[in-house]
């Protein structure tokens, strides 16, 4: 839980954050200002999340990445100058990240998550992990969970992307708009006018860890019935995660043809394994999964950035617990898995 502090916003902060304070209120802005955020994986999606979180006015952001800037990152990683290929992605992103908002304290960490103890992650109020393998994600998620710290993760492959959230036991307030018919003065042409006002209610959401969401038993009747109205995005994510586990990398644009064949084969295996309907996971969903498209990174990074703001400010219902962007239909939706 982010501690609230009672120090008033400075005039400079009030001026810079004016347009968002008018949306989420002063209290949310104060909570944001107290929040320490860790972003893991500073490729295209990590850069988008970092931008949104830094602009919102949190206390600090740590950019963690042990990888080097690659040519393919130039399609989406705008925090790294394009002439820094071969250098550490977190370090080369520092200058531009700081320029986005000098009021936020920004640091870089270049170790691999595997070489960092659990206590490193739980120093932060919220962790956003991108570009990791399933077991790495689960380990960090569980470490956060044990310390009651919030965890988000996500990835973008080409135009496709997902997000997962584990906010553990999350309390938040929600503004509900209500309408009331009101009688006006006799000069009013409309006899009655509708007055809108909002009330604030306190709510609570219980989350499950990532391993639960990723180990759904699709043979259960309630899950089978989801397939009928469902979107195949969950399975697209599973295929891409399996690819990463098996080949220790993401699909490679330079091997577009070979990797597409592998992905389609993995799709067929999954369809068989789970007895999914034929044609459920269309080829088109697995053909544009190379690199990171700037537009898709902006979309998923926008959603994750907003979830960080909601989680930290404890205002408005956060997504529980997975979000998918299906680029073929251009639909973005939230579904609960593993509960």
């Amino acid at each position: 839980m982010v501690e609230t502090n009672d120090i008033e916003l400075s005039a400079a902060e009030a001026e810079q954050y004016d347009r968002q304070i008018r949306l989420w209120g002063l209290e949310s802005q104060k909570r944001l200002r107290a929040a320490k955020v860790l972003i893991i994986g500073i490729a295209g999606l990590g850069a988008e999340i970092a931008k949104n979180v830094i602009l919102s006015g949190v206390k600090s952001v740590c950019l963690l990445d042990n990888e080097k800037l690659k040519e393919v990152d130039r399609y989406s990683q705008f925090l790294a100058p394009p002439d820094k290929i071969g250098e550490n992605r977190a370090e080369v992103s520092l200058t531009r990240a700081k320029a986005l908002n000098p009021m936020v304290d920004i640091t870089a960490e270049t170790k691999s998550v595997d070489n960092l103890p659990d206590s490193f992650f739980t120093e932060f109020d919220i962790v956003c992990a991108t570009g990791l393998k399933q077991e790495q994600l689960e380990r960090i998620n569980n470490a956060c969970r044990d310390s009651n710290k919030k965890f988000l993760c996500g990835d973008v492959w080409g135009m496709f992307g997902y997000m997962f959230a584990d906010l553990v036991d999350h309390e938040y307030s929600e503004e509900i708009v209500q309408h009331k018919a009101q009688k006006r003065g006799p000069d009013d042409t409309e006899k009655t006018a509708v007055e809108t006002f909002s009330i604030t209610v306190k709510r609570r959401a219980i989350y499950v860890p990532l391993q639960n969401a990723l180990s759904v038993d699709w043979m259960k009747p309630e899950m089978r019935s989801r397939l009928r109205r469902g979107d195949p995005s969950y399975f697209v994510m599973k295929i891409l995660m399996r690819f990463k586990d098996e080949y220790n990398r993401d699909p490679d644009a330079a091997k577009r043809k070979e990797d597409t064949a592998i992905l389609l084969r993995m799709r067929d295996e999954l369809v068989k394994e789970l007895s999914l309907p034929a044609g459920f996971i269309v080829d088109a969903l697995l053909q544009d999964v190379f690199g990171t498209m700037a537009g898709a990174a902006a979309v998923i990074g926008g959603v994750i950035g907003q979830e960080v703001v909601k989680a930290v400010s404890q205002r408005e219902p956060p997504h529980n617990n997975m979000f998918f962007f299906n680029p073929v239909k251009c639909v973005g939706f939230v579904e609960l898995y593993g509960q």
Binding site: R19, Q20, G295, G302, G305, Q306, C330
Partner: peptide, 22 residues
Amino acid sequence: NIIPAIATANAIVAGLAVLRAQ
């Protein structure tokens, strides 16, 4: 007539717009 404005909603809409342009 100030309409509140935030980075994330703009990022999402602009992302969708460019995917549509593609």
